[in-house]
Design a protein around this nucleic acid. Structure first.
Lengths: 334, 334
DNA sequence: CTGTTAGCGCATTCAC
DNA sequence: GTGAATGCGCTAACAG
């Protein structure tokens, strides 16, 4: 079945396509009688103008891009939730793309979003200085960085005050009783560096024995690392506290430690960071720092929408407040 | 910064735009020297043709639509993961739309996907006979139904053998010891009806006391319903088994019951259905039926891609095998 | 091998 | 108020 075009409508209604176009964009410029006549034809065929043609003809497009590293990551799900809540209320379509941690794909994806004339772009970039962000700056497409801050005065971002989050966690862990502290920074992502800085600035460094550096992102990574930790450090004899800078990884760690019969929080206290949805429901509810990820998404989306629709130009630079959430995984260890 | 167009490239390279176009589509039709010359210019400006214009000019578009009820639902995320794994390997972009359980939005969304000339559409429809599916059939756009089966011989679908899943669960619950069985169908979605049919056909109906009918989709719904159940049925005195036809809801139920100090599985055994990611990690790991949701997504996506790229025309009708997964939430109750 | 021409579906001047 | 032309960026015949 061929698509109905504006010409079909015009012909059927016995008018020119300009008039049909007007009915759709500025109805009051058309005489009431003709307008209603045209509208009835439009309705009859449930005609909808082609966004493609409209875009080519210069109209701003009604879709916004959302670029992340990993589509199925719980962190991004919460982000998506906030974003979706904003855009599904408007008539913007979401075009998502996951780079799968591949910087080349990240750039290509963003380039394609720009080329496709997305009205705006939300991106959780691999780093504030990555190629994708450069591209965005040159493109003049409105965009907001997610989960990432930058000093660039022109660039908008919505992130969490990770430094403060690290401090909150340090203060909590400082009250716990343990013989060794193991820290898993999990990545060199800016957000992680921030929370680590906040953490280390506010914890008694004497207590701080080993720091492991590792590149872990997933539940599986955590599971694997926990095995290594258990083999390397004496978790059975020494009361241990683990600070894992990412909930998803932390849950993997917990799962493995439980399998190894190490009581949590009795023998090993574990804390995470992010407060993803699972953290409250998981095996041992996880002490963590909430980033209000859903809020992050919502705020960023609203700001972007404002910029697109009302041509607001001042960049937004927003840090959501982190909140320490103490759950079972570190309880009873004061 | 204005977009680079094919004309700019042509001008700079001193050729006509047709030649540039050819270099991009069928390079071997162009003399090697000119081709390389043009390619270098293209590279210099990192020119990428506008998908909009290409689409309008009749080229098949490189994006596929993915329509679901709720974008941030764990079930759909797993689906999306499988889908993404296929399309991110090709250069197709995913355009998602969440109807937020609103049938009007579902139709509008699909209509807009069709109008926008998506190369193909994946949809987890509210029902196999909903307006969105009708639209799709008329549109001639290749599409695959997800999490939904239909007798229509022309329509492709990938779902789970929910009836069998229900049977598997019935067989498991049949081995448990309990005084009352509470069933939460949670919705009248086809998949749920199927699994309920499979369940009821294979369980001893004498044991089957109350059946609750309820329209629950979320964790919060489960949480709320559990409160009601605890007030209505005597969970404290009667050993109870609850079959909740949806993991997400089941986890909400468990959470609330635990808060009410009802031991699980000791006093109340709970089983779910779906095996979403959380189910293995949650407070009380959940006995459930795995639908291999990620596989569903992958298989559907691959089939759709085959249809788009190789014009394969035979519809796919695929049911992934359900697997019973026994976890702690029903253990030790034989 | 390469350039010219004519749409694709629409919005937007500009005339009438 | 309305219609006829023009262009958005590109591809696909059609000529040369």
């Amino acid at each position: 079945m061929k698509h109905i075009t504006i010409d079909d409508i015009a012909k059927e209604a016995g008018v020119s396509k300009s008039t049909v176009s007007r009915v759709l964009s500025r109805p009051n410029l058309v005489k009431e009688r003709t307008r209603e006549q045209i509208l009835s034809v439009i309705d009859k065929y449930s005609y909808v103008p082609s966004a493609l043609a409209q875009g080519l003809a210069g109209l701003p497009m009604k879709n916004i891009g959302f670029a992340v590293d990993e589509f199925s990551n719980n962190f991004y799900i919460d982000l998506a939730d906030g974003i979706d809540s904003v855009f599904s209320a408007s008539d913007y379509a979401l075009q998502v793309m996951s780079s799968r941690w591949n910087p080349v794909r990240e750039i290509q994806g963003v380039r394609s979003m720009i080329i496709n004339r997305n009205a705006g772009i939300l991106i959780a970039p691999s780093s504030p200085g990555c190629g994708a962000v450069d591209l965005l700056k040159k493109s003049k497409v409105p965009f907001v960085l997610l989960n990432c801050r930058t000093d660039d005065p022109d660039v908008s971002y919505v992130s969490c005050d990770n430094y403060k989050g690290g401090r909150l966690m340090a203060e909590h862990i400082g009250t716990l009783d343990f013989e060794q502290l193991i820290i898993l920074p999990v990545s060199d992502h800016q957000t992680v560096l921030d929370r680590m800085a906040g953490f280390e600035d506010h914890i008694d460094m004497k207590a701080l024995r080993p720091i492991m550096s590792s590149n872990a992102k997933t539940y599986q990574d955590g599971y694997r690392i926990a095995q290594f930790i258990a083999e390397t450090y004496d978790l059975v004899r020494k009361k241990t506290c683990l600070f894992v800078a990412n909930d998803y990884v932390a849950i993997g760690v917990i799962t493995k430690l439980l399998e190894l019969k190490i009581p949590i929080p009795g023998q090993a206290a574990v804390a995470g960071f992010d407060d993803i949805r699972i953290s409250a429901m998981c095996r041992i509810p996880l002490t963590t720092v909430s980033q209000s990820v859903c809020d992050m998404g919502r705020i960023a989306a609203q700001s972007l929408l404002g910029r697109i629709q009302h041509h607001k130009t001042e960049p937004i630079k927003y840090l959501v407040e982190p909140r320490l959430i103490i759950r079972e995984s570190t309880k009873g260890r004061t």
